[in-house]
Amino acid sequence: DVAEQPAPAPLDGPTEESLQLVSQLKDCLSSCAVDVSTVWWEAAGSRELCVVTACESSVSLWKPLASDCWGKAHTWQLGEVPVIQLVPLPDTCSLVCIALGELEITEIRLLLCSSEDDSFRQSLVKTGTIEAVLGLKDRRLVSSSRALQEQQVEVVWLSETGGSKDRQTLMPPEETVLAFAEVEGMRDALVGTTAVNSVVVWNLKTGQLLRKMHVGYSYPASVCHRAYSDSGLLFVVLSHPHAKESKSYGNPAFRLVAFNPKTARSMGVMFSSLPPGHAGRQGDVTDTSAAAVLTSGAIAVWDLLLGRCTALLPPGPAGGWALARWATATATACLLAGRRDGTVCLYRY
């Protein structure tokens, strides 16, 4: 039996020691980095792990050069609608997915290089008032969108050429879905978190809404990041961007919660809180590690199974950090830390 653990005090002054700077890249033309990600890219028969940086009006692909340097291979110029975020597509090569919009997402596009004539192209996948989007394994994309009073939750199968091969509608819950997470190891299971603090579970094959389970009002607007099933329980990593500070738990950032899908009962397993004196966070999770940008301009890294803050990257002389993303599809954990001026630092964790 495991009870929810209050987070131990962070290590005695966690520093960047557990983060090793590998390389950094700087987009001289950019002054407005909005997101950063990694993608496997195939060219001339070889496959390389590349970095993707997004500004409001363009997205750039960076290929590895000798001695930990990066060279810009291509920049896609976008239209008038600004880029809001990059949408990683797990297990996918030579395909970049982006979400565009003003305050909310209104377009999802794919960026690619045509195999026919080696020309870099972009294609439109979806338009609408889109609340949440997530790339799934096997070149699938799930999104929730609103039209009038109706909510649509849809899975799109993407083709290698940047089109959509097929679409399936999932049964929507009554409340708005704000985030999705694949259930690892279960190809047909998907979870989502809603605007009224529920975790919902779908069967992706049939489109059925299987269960709605309440998270609790202490954690408003919880966001799911990762989910896996073990021993008949569904474990979900949630972040709590708006949770209130409490005496026993401090300022909660991430929780690992075990749900019994059969009874819809839940139990907190592990709890990670912000370092003392810090507030605000925008987080990203990979495996058992979480990272978040704090309002102080620092980046905090947690071990979610220990519930402990393991590293703190302070804001540098060039200014505070603005982005923290885990690189996808790398053998070892790699953190991408970005500043608004377009500088991206790669840290091995």
């Binding site: 049964m171 279960m186 489109g207 008949g232």
Partner: peptide, 23 residues
């Protein structure tokens, strides 16, 4: 986590809920 806290646990929860849920 124990059954006393979370209720009866089933290893086949996904298949069982799929069989019960409206399609």
């Amino acid at each position: 986590c124990s059954e006393s806290d979370l209720g009866p646990i089933s290893l086949n929860w996904f298949e069982e809920l799929s069989a019960e849920a409206p399609s």
